[in-house]
Design a protein around this nucleic acid. Structure first.
Lengths: 197, 197
DNA sequence: GTCGCATGAGACATGAATGTCTCACATGGG
DNA sequence: CCCATGTGAGACATTCATGTCTCATGCGAC
């Protein structure tokens, strides 16, 4: 046969496999191990040699997502400068991981057992702390809880990643759309707010 | 045996089955037909008598979600009054359907084929038209596209529904959290916006 | 050239979910 | 009272993803 045009390197690029899997599973969360393997350009046997099974693959994706998240949190330096600017830095830094996070966000199976990865809790806490800092500094409103703002950030990241892959939003507008909506909302600056009921 | 305490009525309450299925599948999207049946308090055989298979069940849930969405769109009277108020009415009216919509939103299998239900397009168009109307009236910012605002609304509804079931947000705050974030954003009113780059 | 090693291809068994069937029972109407 | 209907329970075959295995190939190292 020899239908593989490129030479086979010594070892499969594990990172490449994970990213291909993330890209595919984001679009089709029920994809078969065989489809995942084909998407990565390897055989099902090799895929299984590197990841004991589907569960192990998803767990590896989870670890990758957590690692990228925490790296982004470090890079964004959430403790420095005005909190709104820190949010902008965070979203911009998180953009390359958005598709992976969108997949993990909908993989609710990861969060049901008590063996859920503690990494998510750490990440949640760090982001919530950022919003809390902004509230304490008088930059953010206090009627939106830090927990909700954190959850909303996840949701907007997932929606944004999805909208980009669907072509409803240009990739270059990803960061702008998310940060502006999250921070400023849809209303124009000069539009008076409606009284609270 | 006679382990069923309540008398069996003439016909299974189809709506009750669908709502039970939606509640379960929202938490565990990979639930078995047997689990769905047990959640609804019926046997797998009866479940299969009413819905030919898992696919048919999901399609029925989709139709239910579309119907509730369109009913909410009608009730909210999006064409009347200020656009921001219409958004508030829409979110409030959509709240009871939020969990179902959150499940359908993550069921990306519904949107991949070209046989996707045209109802979603109609709904998208109506909501996008609302945002476009608000932009034309000078109430909404024009740098956030109607398509993105629509997508963000879906994302926030899903995040809100998820946050409520997880206990991170009180159910009574659902509408407030979503509408205030979507319309006003996280920044305080008097916080100066950062210059656009 | 030869060996080692990772891979691709495919066969095979296993397990789970599904779809279909039959039978018994309980209810409600005639 | 008897029958029709809808249901629960369970058996059964089928399908499919998965996990495991073997074997051949191709490349790099020695």
């Amino acid at each position: 046969m020899s239908h593989m045009g490129y030479g086979c390197l010594m070892a499969v690029d594990r990172d490449h496999v994970l990213r291909s899997a993330a890209a595919l599973l984001t679009r089709k969360s029920t994809a078969t191990m065989d489809e995942v393997a084909k998407a990565a350009g390897i055989s099902r046997a090799t895929l299984h040699r590197h990841f004991a099974g589907r569960d192990a693959l998803v767990r590896a994706l989870e670890s990758l997502g957590i690692a990228e998240c925490e790296a982004a949190l470090d890079t964004a330096a959430l403790d420095e400068g005005p909190a709104p600017d820190a949010v902008r830095r965070l979203v911009r830094t998180l953009e390359p991981s958005a598709a992976l996070l969108a997949f993990l966000y909908t993989e609710n199976q990861l969060f049901e057992g008590e063996q859920q990865n503690a990494g998510w809790t750490r990440i949640d806490d760090r982001i919530a702390a950022l919003f809390r800092r902004g509230q304490a500094a008088g930059e953010f409103r206090i009627d939106l809880t830090p927990a909700w703002l954190t959850e909303a950030l996840y949701g907007l990241l997932a929606s944004g990643a999805w909208a980009v892959t669907e072509g409803r939003v240009a990739r270059k507008d990803f960061t702008h759309m998310i940060t502006e909506l999250l921070l400023g909302g849809a209303l124009r600056q000069d539009t008076p707010r409606r009284k609270e009921s």
